[in-house]
Simulated assay, not measured.
Amino acid sequence: MVRFNEIKNQNGRVFLITGANSGLGYETSKFLLERGATVIMCCRDLLKGEKAKQELLKFNFSGNIELFELDLSDLNNVKRFSESIKNKFNCLDILINNAGIMAPPKTFSKQGLEIQFAVNHLAHMSLTLELLPMLEEKNNSRVVTVTSGVQYFGKIQWEDLQGNLKYDRWAAYAQSKLANVMFGLELNLKLKERNSQTSSLLAHPGFARTNLQPKSVEANQSWQEGLAYKLMDPMFQSAKMGAMPQISAATLSSAQGGEQYGPRFNFRGFPKICRNAPKALNQASRKKLWEISEKLIKDA
């Protein structure tokens, strides 16, 4: 079980975090800045990003903040953003694929793909592959992909990946979070096969209070969902605690590629190594998803 004081100083290390202006991303940024890291905060809304940056600057942390706009709902934007990162920075130590959207009404990305599959999975895969050469220049660099406990209930709808025949917003969310795990494990295997110094890890926050829940209630105008969150509220932990698994995966010297960190009691508690979704352990399925995803990214 990992405690906050076990995380070493991060002076001189560069972290890129998607969805960094709120929730888990904000808490992860705050934690790393306190320990001297340079944090590249990536946000879809630059105004909200600037507000978060100003809040963090008030703490006078020893780390440095760099703020960038990144729209994960547009794969072309991901490519342009990646080029700007390559041009501005000489190196990158850790990529934290943190941003995500949860259970909206049926919505499409700029490329016409189901929004959760596009943002939670495809955009982060594209970003990772674009920045991998930078990461591989550093020893012990890492990619941390943030999934969710719903990975265990997820199923890849091979015949209807985009929900065109039938759309269930929660099933689509679970599919995207299972895809995160499949991507993270397959990436780690590929890195191992070429003896790379970079490793791929996973993390999930358990039940953490973030803006995902109110955004989902608002988007779907669902009083039932709002009531369910109110009844479940005592089970939720803070965003700060929810961020600990991804911080652990990103910074612990003992963490190994292919591992997933999650709360001790699965939905809350200090982080520990937890099991990956059984459906993500099938390498043939992972390879199939990788190839489909790679084609969708290339066709963007």
Rank of each mutant, 00 (worst) to 15 (best):
Glu83Ala: 15
Leu24Phe: 02
Lys155Thr: 11
Met134Asp: 08
Ala37His: 09
Asn139Pro: 12
Phe15Glu: 07
Phe59Lys: 13
Lys30Trp: 07
Leu32Tyr: 09
Leu67Tyr: 07
Lys88Cys: 07
Gly23Arg: 04
Thr145His: 08
Ala99Tyr: 00
Gln157Trp: 01
Asp74Cys: 14
Ile96Arg: 09
Lys88Tyr: 12
Phe31Asn: 09
Arg80Val: 08
Thr107Trp: 01
Thr18Trp: 00
Leu132Pro: 15
Lys79Glu: 14
Arg142Lys: 13
Phe117Val: 02
Leu67Gln: 09
Glu130Ala: 13
Gln151Glu: 10
Leu72Asn: 00
Thr28Phe: 05
Pro104Phe: 00
Phe89Thr: 00
Ile65Lys: 08
Thr28Leu: 13
Gln111Phe: 06
Asn97Asp: 07
Phe15Thr: 02
Thr28Cys: 06
Asn76Lys: 14
Asn98Cys: 10
Leu92Arg: 03
Thr128Ile: 12
Thr147Val: 07
Leu129Pro: 09
Ala37Thr: 06
Asn90Val: 02
Thr107Glu: 11
Glu55His: 10
Leu92Gly: 11
Glu34Trp: 07
Leu33Cys: 08
Pro133Met: 11
Gly112Pro: 13
Lys88Phe: 07
Ile156Asn: 06
Tyr152Ile: 00
Ser148Leu: 03
Lys79Thr: 10
Ile65Ala: 08
Asp93Phe: 15
Phe153Ala: 12
Asn97Ala: 11
Leu46Asn: 01
Phe31Leu: 05
Leu127Gln: 00
Ser141Trp: 03
Ala123Thr: 01
Lys110Gln: 15
Gln116Pro: 11
Ser109Gly: 11
Glu159Thr: 07
Asp74Tyr: 04
Leu46Tyr: 15
Gly100Cys: 06
Pro105Asn: 15
Leu129Gly: 02
Ala52Ser: 13
Leu122Arg: 01
Val39Leu: 10
Val14Lys: 01
Ile96Glu: 06
Lys110Asn: 15
Asn21Ser: 13
Asn90Met: 12
Glu69Gly: 15
Ala20Lys: 07
Ser22Val: 03
Val143Ile: 14
Thr18Cys: 04
Gly63Lys: 14
Leu57Asp: 15
Phe15Val: 04
Asn60Leu: 04
Leu92Pro: 08
Val146Arg: 04
Met41Ile: 03
Leu56Thr: 05
Leu32Asn: 12
Ile101Gln: 02
His124Thr: 04
Glu66Gln: 12
Thr128Ser: 13
Ser62Ala: 14
Gly63Ile: 06
Phe153His: 06
Arg44Tyr: 12
Glu159Tyr: 00
Phe89Ser: 05
Ser82Met: 13
Asn60Glu: 15
Gln157Leu: 07
Ile65Asp: 06
Asp93Cys: 13
Ser109Asn: 10
Ile65Leu: 12
Arg44Leu: 10
Asn64Tyr: 07
Leu70Arg: 01
Gly149Glu: 08
Met134Lys: 13
Asp45His: 13
